[in-house]
């Protein structure tokens, strides 16, 4: 194949990917570049001047009272959603991978919340779990003779309530990824294990879990990153309250924008990017080692 022929064959592929690359550049790379750039500027909504301020925005960040709370909450949210989701989803995926009657209906039901808008899910649960007389869940709880639970108004309960709402919405997504991976595990392995006298637990632990390593990696890494950048479900349910108890990194960043300090908010966003990248690198490194140990 000569050089011209090679170029001719490559052009359609470049042209096919170009729209996606273009959109990625416009909506991700360029805004990212400007966010980092403006993090070094003093840019507010009360002054027409945008002046270079060096690292001054970054110097202010450690003094920010919300920083510790928001990082702690973001990490709690990300870790808890990933762990709870994995613990619930994996066994369900295994069951739905078997020859269960009506399994397609269950798959569809479990996946249904995924297609809903997160804001809609947030507002829906906000009303279902309201501590007013209109709250459906509390009506049931009090009807059974128990005390009302202040799901979103109690600072000790609110974050866990949001975590459970998030798990409810997204566990269908994780389930689909596990299911896809489960279908790639060879049936021969199970037959061989049966011949060797392995019980259900042995099969789950020594065949299914290692076989699901790629799916676990995808779910954990994307789950952690999505968890760290949680925003919409918080805004829809508690808006960071009560008393900032459910504030996360991105809701804090949003409030910096509300204060009109765009440069500082950009610095906050850049710090978040670095934190998210560090977490992603640690996780990917860990999974690489695990996969090497499994010989994959």
């Amino acid at each position: 194949m000569n050089r011209n022929q090679k170029i001719k064959n490559t052009v359609p592929y470049i042209a096919m990917t170009a729209p996606a690359v273009l959109l990625f550049l416009i909506f991700f790379v360029i805004p990212l570049f400007f966010t980092i750039r403006y993090s070094f500027y003093n840019w507010t909504n009360y002054s027409p001047d945008i002046t270079f301020s060096g690292l001054s925005n970054y110097v202010k960040i450690p003094e920010d009272k919300m920083l510790k709370t928001s990082i702690k909450n973001s990490l709690l949210f990300a870790t808890a959603t990933v762990v709870i989701q994995s613990v619930i989803t994996m066994p369900i995926a295994v069951v739905l991978n078997s020859k269960l009657r009506g399994r397609n209906i269950f798959r569809a039901i479990f996946f249904m919340p995924v297609v809903m808008s997160t804001l809609v899910v947030g507002y829906l649960w906000k009303y279902l779990l309201s501590s007013s007389d209109y709250g459906f869940v509390n009506q049931i709880i009090t009807g059974l003779g128990f005390e009302k639970i202040n799901f979103f108004g109690n600072g000790n309960v609110a974050m866990w309530t949001i975590i459970l709402v998030e798990v409810w919405q997204w566990f269908g997504w994780a389930m689909v990824i596990y299911l896809g991976n489960l279908q790639n595990i060879s049936g021969d392995l199970f037959e061989a294990a049966s011949v060797d006298g392995a019980n259900a637990w042995d099969r789950f632990w020594h065949i299914i879990v290692p076989g699901l390593a790629p799916a676990i990696k995808i779910n954990v890494v994307t789950g952690m990153i999505n968890g760290l950048k949680v925003f919409d479900i918080i805004v829809a349910t508690t808006n960071g309250g009560p008393a900032h108890r459910t504030e996360t990194i991105l809701t804090s960043m949003y409030s910096k924008f509300s204060d009109g300090n765009f440069g500082y908010a950009s610095a906050y966003g850049t710090v978040f990017l670095v934190v998210a990248m560090i977490v992603a690198c640690i996780l990917l490194g860990g999974f690489k080692k695990w996969e090497e140990r499994l010989g994959q």
Binding site: L129, S130, S131, S132, N150, G153, N154, G241
Partner: peptide, 10 residues
């Protein structure tokens, strides 16, 4: 504190 879980509309 129950009012912290109630919207203004409610």
């Amino acid at each position: 504190s129950e009012m912290l879980g109630i919207s203004n509309e409610e």
